[in-house]
Write a protein that binds this DNA or RNA. Structure first.
Lengths: 143, 143
DNA sequence: CTTTAATCAGACAAAAACATCTGATTTTAA
DNA sequence: TTAAAATCAGATGTTTTTGTCTGATTAAAG
């Protein structure tokens, strides 16, 4: 199979976008996120826990507990979520799997792939997630 | 982790590029490929078997047996190898993992990601692997 | 105070990906 | 003719990823 992000990361991205699309300060339970996004509850719970540890979201314990953004959506980029879950290694490793792939010892597609990778990185880091609020709401409404 | 191609696919790409960089019609054993590219022998053997089944390479059995391209390197593109091993599904599925991600029900990054995906596809399908011969030889020489 | 409903921590289980093993068959060459 | 060296097919084993379970803790509300 070919994948860009792990399932964990996909789910994490979805969940954070979901929370960013809610009314400010509203708390979402893991169960709500699980239901709305069709993600296994126990699995998304674990992912939300790790995002809490990363400081991207914060949790409230006890009855009426749940999660919300720990920082304003105008300060969170998609790449921050990717970095917290999958790390940034793939933006720095050879697409063909060759070791020691550097400008001095490039793989056959080094230059071309490097450009693409840079564009992907830019896409994930140029906009903050508040920009996605409306699009996220539209998407969620049809799930 | 974040990955573009599976390990199988990376190894397959490396192996086919390696064979394409050899003198025409020269046969390479799985062991040679394993040694030169530092890929576990039994694993690359399996991958070579499946590439043989796909018709990209051909095998010769018995002593002095091995593998070579089944078609000229001027007719093989990287995407053909990717398709044979990983399939093309990822070029047609949502980067955020949303279901039913279409122009009508786009995910928040649908348009931007679509453009990148198209560029990646073009990179893999625009050139045939005979173009990579020299670069491959250079790369292999330092492994 | 007790019940309820949530997160949290860590163990456990299942599935997929990665890798290896075994034995059969094929072919070359001594 | 036989030994050696290769592919082939299928089973098996290992590791990583994905997903689940259990019990503890926390906090609100009856």
């Amino acid at each position: 199979m070919t994948v860009l992000f792990s399932k964990k990361c996909e789910y994490g991205l979805q969940a954070v976008l979901y929370m960013a699309a809610q009314d400010e300060d509203r708390i979402c339970s893991a169960e709500e996120i699980s239901n709305k996004l069709s993600i296994p509850k126990e699995f998304i719970s674990k992912i939300l826990q790790s995002l809490t540890a990363s400081g991207i979201i914060e949790s409230k314990k006890g009855k009426t507990g749940g999660f919300r953004l720990a920082i304003h959506s105008s300060k969170i980029k998609l790449i921050d979520i990717v970095e917290a879950i999958d790390g940034l290694e793939s933006f720095n490793s050879c697409v063909l799997g060759f070791s020691n792939c550097t400008p001095k010892n490039p793989c056959p597609v080094h230059k071309e792939w490097g450009e693409l990778r840079t564009k992907a990185y830019e896409m994930l880091s140029s906009e903050t997630i508040d920009k996605f609020k409306e699009k996220t709401l539209n998407k969620i409404s049809v799930l």
